[in-house]
Design a binder for these strands. Structure first.
Lengths: 127, 127
DNA sequence: TTATTATATGTACATATAAACATATGATAA
DNA sequence: TTATCATATGTTTATATGTACATATAATAA
């Protein structure tokens, strides 16, 4: 693949403030960008991963489904704090629930979530 | 740290506020949780993905390396705003840079980043 | 040197948000 | 019914953070 980086088309190279240095790259990338709404949703998804409490919850749930009580005990956090985060995670379709009497069990929504966790951890742990 | 309850020891099932409903699950998951610092780092990584400006930058860079000017033009944003976010992304080892004279080209740090973007988008786009 | 251009940075402000606290809801058993 | 337990939900407060603005730095050319 030759990305036609320097095609010596200096007539197209304008100043930075208006249209950028490489208009051909800009227009090519522009056509390949997802819809703005998809990118917003994607940012919202990752935002839910971007908090240490929620990450700990998610990692715990990647090991086993758990009820709110168990998560409170594991994370040594107050129940309302855990419930608030679980609500956020559920609204973002990152976790799902199953009810058994008074107890509500939380688990990861699908396989993507576990893969995201693992891939992120891989990145963290490499040099 | 020494819960001898391992089988169906219902005498170990206490009320929620103190030790949780399922102590055997808690202790098992507890031993499999990564170090607290790793989870903090992981949350910080995802936090960087959790903003629509940065997500747009990252997606653009997944298509092609780009200079700051080009990103400003593509995203229709002011240069200081873009530079601030690029600084965050670089500190988080999500992007890397290459200098050519006055121009600094940004690109994704490694393959993990692109995979995270793609997997997140897959999750967004499924029912 | 000075001028120009590309990028970086310091600061201020406005918004977003996580946790603490109190309280409400829903399910079950007596 | 009432009592109890597991979970959810308001509300407040303190902190985090994204952007705008002004300015600084770095590389190149004249």
């Amino acid at each position: 693949m030759s990305p036609s980086a320097s095609k010596t088309d200096h007539s197209a190279v304008e100043i930075c403030e208006t249209i950028g240095i490489h208009p051909e790259i800009i227009s090519k990338v522009s056509t390949e960008m997802p819809d703005r709404n998809d990118l917003l949703d994607l940012a919202d998804l990752f935002k839910l991963f971007g908090d240490s409490t929620r990450i700990r919850i998610l990692w715990a749930l990647s090991e086993s489904e758990m009820c709110v009580c168990d998560l409170c005990s594991l994370l040594e956090m107050k129940q309302p704090a855990v419930s608030h985060q679980l609500k956020n995670l559920k609204q973002g379709r990152i976790v799902k629930t199953r009810r058994d009497g008074k107890v509500i069990y939380y688990s990861l929504d699908d396989a993507h979530i576990r893969m995201l966790l693992n891939m992120g951890m891989e990145h963290i742990r490499e040099a």
